[in-house]
């Protein structure tokens, strides 16, 4: 019971959008897709959904290829928000639910429950174009969840939302995961991925350059940060062997190192100059890993 992507490649003419991608998303887990714009995330999602066919390789859900026959188990939130601007919220959600195989009355009940949950019940009879962007986003999310799918693909679910709504949607997604749904989502926000995902991959030019569990990815990165605070200038420590970079701050600075032993070396050397007020070894953030791997131009 898992989503399996095996050696998938997709070419458009001469351009290779996705190159030899393999991954397994276990049932009930949450998988994060990171990547700059144009890295191949949306193409991968479209292949999972069967909107595009893989040039090579295979994609299966519970051992079977995804076709329109098992489409009712899948929920999709596209990156570009898409709803009928002139149709009212309730009719629209019921219609989309019906397309996913729901009965009309069942869809109506489910839609109303969701609208209540997201505190937008009073918009049920409004046209979508009259809603704020954040509320449209909620409607969009409901459209992808209303039929209780077991595999949910969310392309940038939190973009354009205020922090209160982000929390509300995050909670809803976690609730669904608890009920056993498998969720794949992409984001530009590293903190969301760090917070929510068991597994992740970073895509760059169509390839998964980093993948695995959060811990594996951080360990595998092979770099750590050392934060020092002192009353004297720490610049000279940047010259030390094993220090990759140094970023001075008002009270001290941040060193990036490849080996934990260097951290102690740094501390010892610093103590020869004077008192140290703060010393900490920090794990790299996903942001660091992403920037390092994908390149600073995308940060």
């Amino acid at each position: 019971m898992a989503l399996k992507i095996e050696h998938v490649t997709r070419r458009f003419g001469d351009f290779t959008a996705v190159k030899d991608l393999s991954m397994i998303v276990e049932q009930g887990s949450m998988y994060g897709f990171l990547g700059a714009n144009g890295a191949g995330k949306t193409t991968t999602f479209r292949m999972i959904l069967g909107l595009l066919d893989a040039t090579e390789g295979s994609i299966t859900w519970n051992g079977k290829p995804i076709t329109y026959a098992n489409r009712s188990h899948i929920g999709y939130l596209p990156e570009e928000r898409g709803l009928y601007p002139k149709m009212n919220v309730e009719d629209q959600l019921v219609y989309l639910g019906q397309l996913r195989g729901m009965k009309k009355t069942g869809a109506k009940n489910a839609v109303n429950q969701w609208l209540e949950k997201f505190e937008v019940k009073h918009y049920a009879q409004k046209k979508v174009e009259e809603l704020s962007k954040g509320n449209q986003q909620k409607i969009q999310l409901i459209a992808s969840l209303v039929h209780k799918p077991s595999l949910i693909i969310l392309d940038e679910p939190f973009s354009g939302l205020d922090p209160v709504n982000v929390e509300m949607l995050k909670k809803a997604i976690l609730d669904i995961q608890k009920e056993g749904a498998t969720i794949v989502f992409s984001s530009h926000r590293m903190d969301h991925v760090e917070e929510l995902c068991d597994q992740l991959c970073i895509m760059h030019h169509g390839e998964a350059i980093v993948s695995g569990s959060l811990r594996e990815v951080k360990r595998g990165f092979g770099r750590q940060n050392v934060r020092l605070k002192a009353d004297f200038d720490l610049t000279f420590l940047g010259e030390l062997e094993g220090v990759n970079s140094f970023q001075p701050s008002i009270e001290g600075g941040l060193f990036q190192i490849s080996d934990e032993r260097i951290a102690h070396e740094l501390l010892r050397t610093a103590l020869t100059r004077g008192d140290i007020r703060y010393f900490a070894i920090e794990e790299p953030s996903l942001q660091d890993i992403f920037i390092e791997k994908v390149g600073k131009e995308y940060a």
Binding site: G50, Y76, G82, Y84, L99, R100, S144
Partner: peptide, 16 residues
């Protein structure tokens, strides 16, 4: 209209 409002992508992920 369905394409420009991007609702198309949801629809064709449900129906061929």
């Amino acid at each position: 209209t369905e394409k420009s409002s991007r609702v198309m992508e949801i629809i064709i992920s449900s129906v061929s």
